Simulated scan of single mutants.
Amino acid sequence: MADEADVASEIADHWVSMRVGGLLQSVNTVSDNTHCEDCGDEIPAARRKAAPWATLCLTCQEIQEKASMQYRR
């Protein structure tokens, strides 16, 4: 039977691999990241220049971050 630390470690490993995989995909398609993958709105040029790996517009990014903060509690 797995203890809580093992389960937590597996969950953390899963999230890290998902995030790294997403970042690698983003890096591979940087030139195509002109529109938000959530809402479809255009990602402003200033955001694309500041964070070329960004796949979300600022609004969707903020929503995602707020949701992840609630999940961590």
Rank of each mutant, 00 (worst) to 15 (best):
E37Q: 13
E37M: 09
T59S: 12
Q61Y: 09
S31K: 07
D38S: 14
K66E: 15
C57Q: 03
E10S: 10
V7W: 09
I63K: 14
Q61V: 04
T29Q: 14
V30Y: 13
S17C: 04
M69L: 09
A50L: 04
D13F: 06
A8L: 03
P52Y: 03
A12T: 02
I63V: 12
A12S: 03
D13N: 13
D3R: 09
T55K: 09
H35Q: 09
A50K: 08
Y71S: 09
V20C: 05
W15C: 01
E4W: 05
N28D: 15
R48F: 00
D32V: 01
N28R: 13
K49I: 03
R47N: 01
S68D: 15
S26Q: 09
W15A: 06
C36P: 00
A67K: 15
V7S: 08
D32Q: 12
V20S: 07
Y71P: 04
W53R: 01
V27E: 13
V27N: 10
T34R: 06
V16C: 07
L24T: 11
G21N: 05
L58R: 14
V16L: 11
L56E: 08
Y71K: 07
S17G: 05
A50C: 06
G21W: 11
D32Y: 02
A54C: 07
P44V: 05
G40E: 11
E62W: 04
V30F: 12
G22N: 14
M18H: 15
L58M: 02
P44C: 04
C39S: 02
H14M: 05
K66C: 00
L24K: 14
E65S: 08
D6K: 01
D13G: 11
G40L: 02
S17Y: 08
I63R: 14
T34F: 01
A46Y: 03
